[in-house]
């Protein structure tokens, strides 16, 4: 089940074992995830597609430790996360997982630099080291001249690049993107996708949830979800 030969190892980064996620809506139980089994190796590029309510966002939230399975087991990097306490889960989110959201989720009162600094600040890294880490990353993302701008002074593409910078600041293994181009025009959307793919080529495991068929088709492995189940899991070109 290895799709790409990682230079170091091909061990599973993510393993879901018959994971359920149920929501209670009134007296009705909605199965957002229904017995999902999934293995993801280091360095993969995966797209998750499917109609609204198919459970793709729930899958992403569970993978990102933002949500907990109702049943089943989630093994991240060899460790079962099901029994982890809040502190440990937070520590994983901090160091192992990066998030990119459709609506960027930048804090409006903070400058681009301060937004990118946030994960480092939460990790208790000294201001000196923060500055040393941010500068090259901002240059790489092409937003160095926007460092002191507030989010509202940036274009959508620039905002999403700041958000991506924030997501990879802690050098996570897993980058989760939920409709990363959903709020962008085609040109800046393409730019953002290229940036994410570039990061993937450098070794980060990239999972993109999207409605956009064209974006989905770019991934090497494409998962299609229907009614909380994985309906299709194919490798590109097959």
């Amino acid at each position: 089940m290895t799709f790409m030969s990682s230079p170091v190892e091909a061990a599973d980064l993510v393993e879901l074992k018959s994971v359920d996620r149920h929501f209670q809506l009134g007296d009705q139980t909605v199965k957002a995830l229904d017995a999902v089994d999934l293995s993801i190796s280091c360095g993969e590029y995966i797209s998750v597609m499917g109609p609204s309510g198919s459970g793709k966002s729930t899958l992403l939230n569970i993978l990102g430790l933002l949500d907990q399975p109702s049943r089943g087991e989630y093994i991240l990097d060899g460790i079962s996360t099901t029994t982890l306490k809040d502190k440990a889960r937070a520590a994983y989110r901090q160091s192992e997982i990066g998030f990119v959201f459709q609506s960027y989720h930048l804090i409006p009162r903070m400058t681009a630099r301060a937004n990118m600094e946030l994960p480092l600040m939460l990790a208790g890294i000294s201001p000196k080291e923060r500055a040393a880490r941010i500068k090259p990353l901002m240059e790489r993302l092409g937003i160095a001249d926007r460092a002191e701008h507030l989010p509202k002074q940036l274009s959508g593409g620039q905002r999403q690049r700041v958000a991506i910078g924030r997501a990879i600041m802690m050098k996570p293994k897993l980058l989760l993107a939920d409709e990363p181009t959903g709020n962008l025009d085609t040109a800046s959307g393409t730019e953002v996708v290229k940036l994410l793919e570039e990061l993937n080529r450098e070794g980060i495991t990239l999972i993109v949830v999207t409605h956009d068929l064209e974006l989905g088709k770019r991934a090497r492995r494409q998962i299609r979800m229907v009614d909380g189940r994985i309906a299709q899991d194919v490798l590109a070109g097959n």
Binding site: L66, A90, Q94, S95, H105, I107, L118, L122, R166
Partner: peptide
Amino acid sequence: TDEIGLLKALGADGTT
């Protein structure tokens, strides 16, 4: 609320 969610996603635990 979404700021709190974001901070949690970025690695803040409840105590923080």
